[in-house]
Simulated assay, not measured.
Amino acid sequence: MKFDMSRAWDDGIAMLRRNTNMVTIIAGVFFFLPYLVLMLMTPDMSQNPAMQPGANDPDAMMNAMMAVYREIWWLILLMALLQGVGTLAIYALISHSNRPTVGEAIGFGFKGLLPFLGIGLLQSLALMLVAGIPLGIAAATGSILLISLVGLTAVVLVIYVYTKFSLSVAVIGMEKQFNPVKAMGRSWALTKGNSLRLWLFYFLLFLAFGVLSAVVAMVVGLVLSLAGPEVALFGNGLVSSLINTVFVCVFLSVVAAAYRQLSGGTPDSISETFD
């Protein structure tokens, strides 16, 4: 079966529209609010001397960024956990014929959190094996040509691996498969023969929302800058959080649609009821 991008988009948006009210609640709690808090609590890097225009000390820049991460690491971790629950809850809401309540969907999200984290760790390990280790070996040789060749190959491999495992979380949410290894294997099988089409689909989605968010952020930033730094900080955080939340909801919906399309949408491959 060849992956149809237009069909995946149409089906994904249709699923999102059918569940707008409940998805809005989940997205607000698990994506919008955490992202807004993170935006407001992250120190302004532009005020750091190491990040000023003209500063050319890479070590100082790295130290400045690491200092920020050490300060807010717990918030980043908490946000990742909340978004994991929210992701699975949204999949539960949009993928079953007898839709669960918001409470049931959130409960499912917490139930699937450990497998969700397991997939993240296994994917990170896979990416390190295909990219990190080869790049490290190439860097040790000191050869610019070898580093460039290995780096280019690593980028291609990372894209390929990400695409092959991109349906893993959808498998948890829609098949209730709580074994992360089996979920990743299922994703690998579903994407067979459609990896390039899927990657292009994801690329176009990220590109479109990236351009849109940049334009909106620029316009809103110019307007809010007239109201003072504090208003601009809160306003920019609010707008960025809203754009991020909308993108997450759309992306999860179209990934769910892609899963349905590639699995054939049969009862054997999809849990039609939530119980």
Rank of each mutant, 00 (worst) to 15 (best):
V161T: 15
Y162K: 13
T163H: 03
T163D: 04
T163A: 10
T163S: 12
K164D: 01
K164A: 12
F165S: 03
F165N: 01
S166K: 02
S166E: 08
S166P: 00
S166N: 13
L167V: 07
S168M: 06
S168D: 02
V169W: 05
V169M: 12
A170S: 15
A170I: 02
A170C: 11
V171K: 05
V171A: 14
V171R: 04
V171W: 04
I172N: 00
I172K: 03
I172F: 05
G173V: 03
G173E: 02
G173W: 01
G173K: 01
G173Y: 03
M174R: 05
M174L: 11
M174Y: 04
M174C: 06
E175H: 07
E175C: 09
E175A: 14
E175M: 13
K176S: 14
K176T: 06
K176C: 04
Q177K: 13
Q177N: 15
Q177D: 15
F178I: 04
F178A: 02
F178D: 00
F178T: 01
F178G: 00
N179R: 11
N179C: 10
N179W: 09
N179A: 10
P180Q: 07
P180H: 06
P180W: 04
V181M: 14
V181W: 15
V181R: 11
V181A: 13
V181S: 09
K182H: 12
K182V: 13
K182P: 03
K182L: 13
A183G: 06
A183Q: 03
A183C: 10
A183V: 05
M184L: 06
M184I: 05
M184K: 01
M184E: 01
M184H: 02
G185L: 06
G185V: 05
G185S: 09
R186C: 05
R186A: 05
R186H: 10
S187F: 02
S187T: 08
S187M: 05
W188G: 04
A189L: 12
A189P: 01
A189V: 12
L190Y: 06
L190E: 01
T191S: 06
K192F: 11
K192R: 15
G193V: 07
G193A: 08
G193Q: 08
G193S: 07
G193M: 08
G193I: 06
G193P: 01
N194P: 07
N194A: 12
N194F: 10
S195N: 10
S195T: 15
L196V: 14
L196R: 11
L196I: 14
L196K: 12
R197I: 03
R197L: 09
R197P: 00
L198W: 01
W199Y: 13
W199D: 02
W199Q: 04
W199V: 05
L200F: 08
L200P: 03
F201K: 00
F201Y: 06
F201A: 00
F201Q: 00
F201C: 01
Y202H: 13
F203D: 07
F203R: 07
F203G: 08
F203H: 08
F203S: 13
L204M: 14
L204N: 07
L204S: 13
L204K: 09
L204Q: 09
L204H: 07
L204G: 05
L205Q: 10
L205M: 14
L205F: 13
L205W: 11
L205T: 05
F206E: 11
F206Y: 14
L207S: 11
L207Q: 10
L207G: 10
L207K: 10
L207F: 15
A208I: 12
A208H: 08
A208M: 12
A208F: 12
